[in-house]
Design a binder for these strands. Sequence first.
DNA 1: CTCCCTTTGAAGACC
DNA 2: GGTCTTCAAAGGGAG
Length: 431
Amino acid sequence: MPHMSSGGSEDFYSTDEVKVYKDEGNKDEEKRSSENLTEEKLGLVTESEEGKGNLAGSERPSNASDDDKSSTVPAAPGQGPPSSMGFFLPPYASPYPNGSSMGKFGIVQPPYPGLVMYNEFAQPPPAHKGYPPVYTDPKTGLPRPPMYAAYPAPGQFPHPLYSPEFTSASWHRPGYPLTSGAFAGSFPPSLSPLSRYGPPGLLSHPGLTHPGHPHHPGIPHPASLGGPGGAGPHKGELLSPQLLDSHRQLNSSSHGDENSSSCKPSPHHHGHPGGESRKKPYVKKPLNAFMLFMKEMRPKVISECTLKESAAINQILGRRWHALDRGEQAKYYEMARKEKELHLQLYPGWSARDNYAAHQKKKKRKKEGECFPFSGECPNEKKCRARYGMEQQSRWCKPCRSLHEKSDQAMVDTDQKNFLLVKTKEEVHSL
DNA sequence: CTCCCTTTGAAGACC
DNA sequence: GGTCTTCAAAGGGAG
């Protein structure tokens, strides 16, 4: 990751880069990027398809050093040097705060032979590696291991499976905050397709019903717990009877003690607007490559600058995404592909359309957001931009133009801000 | 309390 | 088939 080696912050203050991604006046660049990206993406998937082994080989140089890296205490997010690209450390902790984990899965058996298990990550780190600090979620007050902690702190999870006898597997324990987002916001992308979804086979595996939670099926499906309630899909008809039953169990068991907090809706969870939908969990869309990347990189970016607004963070992440080379992006495309694959297997009848209905209100509002170039009403800049393109900005309505200028300026501001932050950090560091 | 912002990608809707 | 819209995550900000 040579381009990230300077601390991953160089992109923060590259105004030019901002324009590349933000100023769509740079048509050539955009077009190139767009076209090539499409091609590249196809290539990436194919590439990763063809070279699954390669992922661990040529494409895994950063991961390839797992062993090397594992010789040191793994850094918690934001603790490691920025240049370490910590997110390429094997962040394969499972996302499931209720104790379900990739590790458990690994222990039992891969439910889908077709799904490649990245066995090199299935090995726990040596015991001497220690554990990263455990943070406390300021909101929930619950212990919150680093988002991407590969090695959860001992004693943080009262789950029996985390007891010493499971030590060898417990390093897979979820390094997740028990977010109110009902796991939705808590899984670290993993090269494993099971990073978000509990192994379907385990969902109703009687053998995995753990003693503390007799009705707990073991591993909830994050996507299925998309609703703030985090209790399971309401699209029961979309689930297999097995899964449905599991989710019912989940609902009735309320996730047990330590996880009950995950059922509390978050004020910031916008998964499903509208009061009623808040009570009705649903099957979420599988994350795409960029979403996986964002999830992984967000804490890192946040730790590198004081920005907290997601919009700003996402802009940075967007630029970083473009800055990734093929190999690195390929990992995320591969992860996304597996996510999708697993999602499909878990919810064969599920369609993204299912979630549209719950957003009708929002949808309607946006639909109403038509461009009225002369009335000065245009709630969505992209309307004019899409309609007339950057070449004909003169045809854009006023709001669209000012919005566009504003967003450009915002980007510049953000970058200047970041530049100052980075500079300050560097100065402080040099002292 | 709810929605917006902001990003990219995937998928569905629509013409 | 091309274009548009919605939704995935996230959390501060605004109304």
